[in-house]
Design a protein around this nucleic acid. Structure first.
Length: 281
DNA sequence: CTTAACGCCTGAAGGC
DNA sequence: TGCCTTCAGGCGTTAA
């Protein structure tokens, strides 16, 4: 479910809660979540550890412990963290993991589809999840020339390229559609055909939309929740995503179309996002 | 090397 | 109402 702004929102929420918490007990309610290590090893690795902080890397969460150990989490489609401060942890069927802390609070991991993944790494161990991660459009200043060179090597549609975490990390289906709409670029355009001007504009729009979404605590299309169970506010600001058949908010003349690209829905305005490299502005 | 398709899971929504 | 199909913000693996 979560893309960069949603993960950033979750991380910011967790930063006010998790540092200093010591794991008294780790409940594994669904073994698949701990499959990489095995339930027993997973519990042994994490029990007794004290959190020092949490950061975002692309769409990954990187928890750090005072021991120097790392916990790397990907929420995939439906994973979510819920801060639990009072009373017993509920018996909800989607709860897969419960970190019970020494101060009697808890961190709940809920995941309807159980696609999320957890990895624990020792202090000097390399973290494979981060090895091939592309550049972060929010925290890094990315030269348009570099992005252009990445595009030029690929024949896939530019929309599909935006979803490739090895180029830019953190963008998912929603923000890919929204950024292309803002940049007035046809999502079907082969990445290799992009111009320097378009590359620069697209980067700018990606940055802008991700930062705007962060300011709104992310987008809640289906069931995204912050760690306090609050919804994000950005869905009101979506221009094309999920708006098939509605009038384009820019030209008002054309209806938003939905097509399939790499088995994912792409929403766009065929008029504003014309195939011809438009003389933008 | 690249690209395209499948599979992982559950539940909600839409068509008939 | 009920059944069946499709869809979902992701991505690793496999096949070509």
């Amino acid at each position: 479910m979560p893309e960069l702004p949603e993960v950033e929102t979750i991380v910011r929420g967790l930063k006010t809660f998790v540092p200093g918490k010591t794991v008294r007990r780790l409940e594994v309610r669904h073994a698949k979540v701990a499959a990489r290590h095995g339930t027993q090893a997973f519990q042994n690795l994490l029990t007794g550890q004290t959190f020092t902080g949490v950061e975002r890397r692309g769409k990954f969460l990187h928890f750090r412990f005072s021991s120097g150990f790392s916990l790397v989490v990907h929420l995939r489609m439906t994973g979510k963290f819920i801060v639990h401060t009072h009373g017993p942890v509920p018996d909800h069927p989607h709860i897969r993991l419960v970190f019970l802390f020494t101060d009697r609070t808890a961190l709940i991991y809920s995941d309807l589809r159980i696609f999320g993944s957890f990895g624990v790494y020792r202090p000097e161990e390399r973290i494979p999840e981060f090895e091939c991660l592309g550049r972060d459009p929010v925290t890094e200043k990315i030269p348009a020339e570099w992005f252009l060179s990445q595009c030029r090597q690929r024949s896939i549609p530019v929309k599909v390229l935006l979803l490739d975490q090895k180029v830019l990390c953190g963008i998912g289906n929603i923000y890919a559609c929204e950024a292309l709409f803002r940049a007035r670029i046809d999502p079907r355009l082969p990445a290799r055909k992009i111009t320097l001007k378009q590359a620069a504009l697209l980067l700018r729009e990606i940055r802008a939309i991700l930062k705007l979404a962060i300011r709104h605590n992310g987008t809640s299309v289906s069931d995204f929740r912050n760690v306090d169970d609050k919804t994000g506010g950005f869905q009101k600001l979506l221009k094309v995503y999920g708006r098939e058949g509605q009038a384009c908010p820019r030209c008002r003349r054309t209806t938003i179309r939905r097509i399939k690209q790499a088995q994912r829905s792409t929403y766009f305005c065929p008029k504003c996002q014309g195939t011809r490299p438009s003389l933008d502005r």
